[in-house]
Amino acid sequence: MDNRQLPSWQVGIEPSGIRYTAGAAADLLSAAASVGIAVPFACKNGVCELCEARLLSGSALNTRNQQTIPIGARLMMCRTAALDHLELEISAVMAAGKNPPRKFQANVVDVRAISHDVYRVELQLPRRRELSFHAGQYLAVNLPDAEPCYFSIASSPSEPHIELHIQASPDWVSAQKVIDALTSGETVNIELPYGKACLACMPEKPLLLIAAGTGFAQMKSLVDYLRGTSCSQTVKLFWGVRRQEDMYLRSMASQWEQDWPEFTFQPVVGDDEDNDWSGHHDQLVRAVLDSGADWNNVEVHVSGSPAMVYTLMDALLEAGLPADRFFSDVLEYAPRN
């Protein structure tokens, strides 16, 4: 039988509430991974038992011994196929923004300048499989005798190392201290993950990603994550900066546009000819409003200063965007009174 004619089943994961579709020809782990659900695994052959789940309801098949799995029994998702709609219990799979922050000591793998004031930092956790986070979340760097410094994670959750983009101009004392510490030290104490403006699975609507400055780091995490799934939704990235040299990975974003048919990139640069940069991100907001998006059928993720985020949010809600489709961590750490 052609696989396109095989039935597909809905799989629900508790307590996260995440749902996805599993075809009869795929194991539950592969089907979950294809839509970006982060089920822990190592071996994919039923030995490591990291992808263990408990069957709450429905009918499933153990593909190793071809036996039907009884309700209430444990199963390995890599060795299980759906025979009906399923409900599973997997405590290791968390809903978006629900991962509890944990402290880790990370090894500093690399620190390098990628623009006149932005550094790319690469960190390695000795026990990477113990860490679960979602695309779009952020972390805290904890230096001795200093307040935590927060930075967006720029890498996908599936990557073995953690990438950061840190803007550290000479007059930004706290960020410069972090770069100095990372450059001179072999390890650093971090705490993660933080943030609710993230993705735990493939989106159901087209995405608009809007970043100002190093807010691009959060969007890079989202894009890298989505490119590793079977995402069929369109994704459009707006990246606003004051000067051409501030768009530190413009070539990367342009390459995404060439390689990924569903993706488009619109740079918004203050010193482009005929542009008028107001200092309050009005130009970026205008570019988003002029995009022609169907505001009733889109999901928006924004990273930037509170002033930019709230200006954009007000404009999009007035244009018809439902409030529950606007996501930004600013709404959590800098709420309006």
Rank of each mutant, 00 (worst) to 15 (best):
T183R: 12
G195Y: 05
M313I: 00
R19G: 02
S16M: 09
L56I: 10
Q176H: 10
P160K: 09
V118E: 01
L222C: 05
L249R: 12
L125M: 03
E273N: 09
V109L: 12
M219W: 04
F133V: 03
F327W: 13
A200P: 02
L50K: 12
P203R: 08
A53K: 06
M313N: 09
L28M: 02
E130A: 14
P203E: 03
Q258S: 13
G46H: 07
T21F: 02
A25D: 15
I210S: 00
D272Q: 08
E332T: 14
L61V: 02
F216D: 01
S251C: 05
S152H: 09
T63R: 11
E332D: 15
A307K: 13
P206I: 04
H165F: 15
F238N: 05
R19F: 05
W239N: 03
L125T: 06
R336N: 10
T214V: 14
S305G: 06
L207Q: 13
E299G: 05
P206T: 08
S278G: 14
W256L: 03
V268I: 13
T80P: 07
Y333H: 14
P7W: 09
R19M: 10
R129I: 04
P193A: 05
V288S: 01
P144M: 09
Y20N: 03
I37E: 08
E191T: 15
D324E: 14
E159Y: 05
E257T: 11
M252L: 15
N337A: 13
I166T: 00
V118Q: 07
E186L: 12
V111S: 00
R242M: 02
V11W: 08
D324M: 07
L131K: 00
V108D: 08
G12R: 15
S16V: 11
L83R: 14
R102V: 05
D324G: 00
P157F: 08
T187N: 11
A154V: 04
H301L: 13
D110H: 14
L75R: 01
L222I: 15
S158V: 08
Q258W: 07
P40A: 09
N297G: 01
V235T: 11
A175C: 04
A113T: 09
H281N: 15
V93P: 03
M94Y: 12
A25I: 00
P306N: 08
F41T: 04
A200T: 08
S155M: 01
F151T: 02
L29C: 08
W277D: 11
A315T: 04
V235A: 03
Y150I: 01
R102W: 00
I37C: 04
P100E: 07
S30Y: 02
A307S: 13
R129Q: 14
E122C: 10
Y150E: 06
D117C: 10
A293N: 03
H134K: 03
A33N: 11
P100C: 10
S34K: 13
P15C: 10
